[in-house]
């Protein structure tokens, strides 16, 4: 188990290297000159050259690359062009809202997705199954930002129960913070819940037809135990992979959700950096997100092993 985890972590090193290189090359293949863009159209050529020198853009590409890579390995992602501070601290400042939003959304989607999925599997072909699955189908079809806009329209604009947008840090108290996070978390969680619900249903149905489930029934187990201990437990392993994918999808979803609800998280930082062509921040944020994403997948594989020892690693 430990050997496997270490081996997987070692495999991550070349992958992260390719990722980092790809991010670097991608941004340095940009047609525009960041210096010219930052200074605006009425800057003189001298001023542009000066800024280029300051940012190191006048050095050869390979020099910039090794410089950047060397610093990145040591945890230094450079300095933001617009924010006037290191990229790492800019990202760290924005981490709290994103983590809170993501966890809340994950909890919502896990509860709704698993419960509705199991219900529709055991009540297969009933009106409950039909309506839950139609809901899930619609939920998968409606994009995150549409859900968000509709929720804002209903609960913030029309009913005025919750704020339209914004954020209050957790240090201001639990409720003031939650008030701002409820709608975004539902927005972000709804899509994942719908997805998980459909998957749970089909995995459950896959298992429910197995011989050992029939045996469990035949030996007189209560239906609840048949479902929870024999069916759900076995359906859970493939579901774990899907939950891993969900965590990853939450990261991308957070970018959109934070934008709609004006939450000052990492996703919004990334979008702002994209719009302002703040390349060090884009580079850093994309790299961090990619690392988190890969680590999540590793964690899921390890968890799958814990849940189901039969899995060969």
């Amino acid at each position: 188990m430990l050997a496997y985890a270490i081996r997987r972590l070692l495999v991550l090193i070349p992958i992260m290297w390719i990722v980092a290189t790809a991010v670097f090359l991608l941004l340095h293949s940009a047609p525009g000159d960041p210096a010219a863009f930052m200074l605006g159209s009425d800057a003189s050529a001298d001023q542009q050259a000066e800024l280029r020198h300051e940012l190191g853009l006048d050095r050869p590409l390979y020099e910039q690359y090794f410089d950047w890579l060397g610093k990145a390995v040591r945890g230094d992602l450079g300095e933001s062009i617009f924010l006037g501070k290191p990229v790492t601290s800019a990202l760290a400042e924005r981490a709290e809202p994103t983590i809170l939003l993501g966890s809340l959304a994950l909890i919502i989607s896990l509860i709704i997705g698993l419960v509705t999925g199991v219900l529709s599997a055991i009540r297969r072909a009933s009106w409950l199954d039909l309506s839950l699955m139609s809901g899930a189908m619609a939920g998968v079809a409606v994009p995150t930002f549409v859900t968000g806009l509709l929720l804002i329209y209903i609960f913030a604009v029309k009913l005025r129960w919750l704020p339209v947008a914004g954020y209050e840090p957790i240090s201001a108290g639990l409720w003031p913070c939650l008030r701002y996070l409820i709608l975004p978390a539902i927005t972000l969680g709804a899509f994942e819940a719908a997805f998980l619900s459909r998957m749970t249903r089909s995995m459950m149905l896959e298992v429910i037809g197995q011989d050992y489930v029939r045996t469990a029934r035949a030996k007189g187990l209560v239906e609840r135990d048949v479902i929870i201990r024999h069916t759900l437990r076995n359906a859970f392993v493939p579901l774990l992979t899907i939950i891993g994918l969900m965590v990853a999808a939450l990261m991308s979803g957070a970018v959109v959700t934070e934008q709609i609800f004006a939450i000052p998280g990492m996703g919004r930082l990334l979008i702002q950096a994209v719009v302002r062509r703040d390349f060090p921040v884009v580079q850093g944020a994309v790299l961090i997100i990619a690392i988190l994403y890969v680590l999540t997948n590793l964690l899921v594989d390890l968890l799958a092993r814990v849940v189901d020892p039969r899995i060969e690693l």
Partner: peptide, 13 residues
């Protein structure tokens, strides 16, 4: 290793 939309955003940037 990149979430799809993030990679797309980076390319668009």
């Amino acid at each position: 290793a990149f979430p799809g939309i993030i990679l797309a955003i980076a390319i668009m940037a």
